[in-house]
Nucleic acid binder design. Sequence first.
DNA 1: AATTATTGTTGACAATTGTAAACTTAAATA
DNA 2: TATTTAAGTTTACAATTGTCAACAATAATT
Lengths: 146, 146
Amino acid sequence: MSEINATKMSPAEWELMRIIWTKKGASSSEVIELMQEKRSWTESTIKTLLRRLVSKKMLTTHKDGRKFIYHPTIKEKDAMNETVSELFEHLCNMKKGQVIINLLSKLELSKNDIQKMQEILVKKEQFAPKMVSCDCLPKEIKDGCC
Amino acid sequence: MSEINATKMSPAEWELMRIIWTKKGASSSEVIELMQEKRSWTESTIKTLLRRLVSKKMLTTHKDGRKFIYHPTIKEKDAMNETVSELFEHLCNMKKGQVIINLLSKLELSKNDIQKMQEILVKKEQFAPKMVSCDCLPKEIKDGCC
DNA sequence: AATTATTGTTGACAATTGTAAACTTAAATA
DNA sequence: TATTTAAGTTTACAATTGTCAACAATAATT
């Protein structure tokens, strides 16, 4: 049962994971030190969060002398995709495009990513519908809306 | 104090809001009826959620005879933008582009939205950096990463 | 070996969230 | 008018989350 599921991570847990992903594994003391440069969480708090991440199977540990080294069980990008996709699944279908437009205009994007996006858009363009319908009401009803 | 802030809505509350947004205001009985076509929540549960949305100032009410009509205090699109932007603020900067690429390839997008996206991308393209750096570790450290 | 420092484990507590029953009030109908 | 019914209000309770302190175990130092 209980599969590994990035969407079960709390915001505080996400902050720890980012450190561990970037360091490609870290001991609690490393995490504590780095984390405390961003947030004034006590050692205790950070230890609790690490423990919870282990119990959620987002981290595994292996002992290195007296300490544990924590390793992520999934990749940061996969976790990001899962989390963002999950959020989008619960938003009005009709307005998702606008939300992405909003993101695109405020985010810093690399040339490479921009090119990939353009390729996708060009391909989608020809078969794109004139309008995407709203799915905020139960299907049976599904009237015009918005 | 306590400003209206869409990011404080829980997932269950979001589901109710979508109905109310789409109906442009609704009574509790309407919400209950529509909601129960999607989720087997009891009347009681839905009433609790409505009450919490009012206390979070996401809804206002005005009396209409014996019942209340609930109205959203912010627009669905604004709430979506706030919520999604908030999530993105806590994700690795370097990988946000990839996440959007992932979204773009799986979402249904209207011709119009695609065109707007293309315009934004074309504008950004020329000044885009070759690479966006990772911000998962506290600034002082900020080494290569990833 | 005794003491100190480091790391890990337990237990806690308040706030939020999902979930709902019970109770109250006011309107509609018998 | 007495009774039923539809709304709205109060209370509740378990699980999750943010936050820690206290305690235990183990390694490092004196």
